[in-house]
Simulated assay, not measured.
Amino acid sequence: MRPGVMGAPVTSSADIDRLEPDDEPFTYVVDLAGTLRLAPRRTEHVACAAGSPVLAAGEITFERVRGEWRATEVSNQSTGYCPDPACWPDVAGALDRAGLARPDGFTAAFVFRRCPGCGELNVVKDEYYVCVFCDGGLTGT
């Protein structure tokens, strides 16, 4: 699988074997049907989803435990879709349907806001809702 192609659907642990995982996380999306799709990390999320809307997006790492793949780290880090941390149930549902063990929530969650003043995308850190580019205020929701 090469970067920049639509993500491969994952419906079981065997699907991950076919993707030849290594120590690097995958780019993932959960499509509107609730299916987890994986692509190499250097793939943009929008490419992984073939330009379609998604329920969730981010990065995910798998580890083999007793012969089965398990999601060990999951984030919502996607500047293409800027998913809210509230999308976790969609990620959890996709992993559960694929029979993949998972954490109880995002292991790293990001809050994204676009500045109404300058239009730049910001990652909100420590609940500090101020644009790093122009010092303008960012909305809290």
Rank of each mutant, 00 (worst) to 15 (best):
E20T: 14
T139A: 11
G51M: 13
D126M: 00
P9N: 10
V74D: 05
V123K: 14
I60M: 14
R114C: 02
P89R: 12
A92G: 04
L138R: 06
I16W: 07
P116D: 07
D104P: 01
Y28S: 00
D96V: 02
C115F: 01
V30H: 02
N76K: 08
A101E: 13
E63A: 13
S75L: 09
R37K: 11
F110N: 08
G34R: 13
V65L: 12
A14Y: 00
T139R: 06
S13F: 02
D15K: 03
T79H: 03
A56D: 01
T107Q: 06
F110W: 02
T139W: 01
V123C: 12
R114N: 06
D135N: 15
V91N: 04
E20I: 04
D17V: 01
I16V: 08
L32M: 15
M6C: 08
E120K: 13
N76M: 05
G58Y: 14
D17R: 03
E120D: 10
A94M: 08
W88L: 03
A39Y: 10
G34E: 13
V132Y: 14
V132A: 07
R2C: 00
V111A: 01
G34L: 13
T107K: 11
L121A: 15
V29G: 08
P21W: 10
S52T: 08
R42M: 07
A92Y: 13
T139E: 12
G136P: 00
A56K: 12
D104T: 05
E44Q: 12
E24N: 08
R114T: 15
V123R: 15
H45I: 02
T107R: 09
E127K: 10
L138F: 06
C87S: 03
K125R: 15
S12Q: 01
L121H: 06
D17G: 04
E20Y: 07
D126T: 11
T139C: 01
S13I: 03
P25W: 11
P40L: 14
E73A: 14
E63F: 10
A71T: 09
T139Y: 03
E120L: 09
G137N: 04
E59P: 00
D96W: 11
A39R: 07
V54C: 10
V132D: 09
S78D: 06
E63M: 10
V10M: 01
V29C: 04
L95F: 06
A50E: 14
A109H: 02
D104Y: 00
F112R: 11
P116E: 06
G119E: 06
T72P: 02
C48Y: 02
T107E: 05
G4H: 13
P83Q: 02
D31A: 12
A94K: 07
L95S: 05
R113C: 05
A94F: 08
N76H: 07
A39L: 06
V54M: 09
I16D: 01
G7S: 05
P9E: 05
Y129Q: 08
E73S: 13
G34M: 13
R66L: 08
T11M: 12
M6W: 03
P9Q: 10
G119I: 05
P116F: 09
A71N: 05
R66H: 07
G99H: 04
V5F: 11
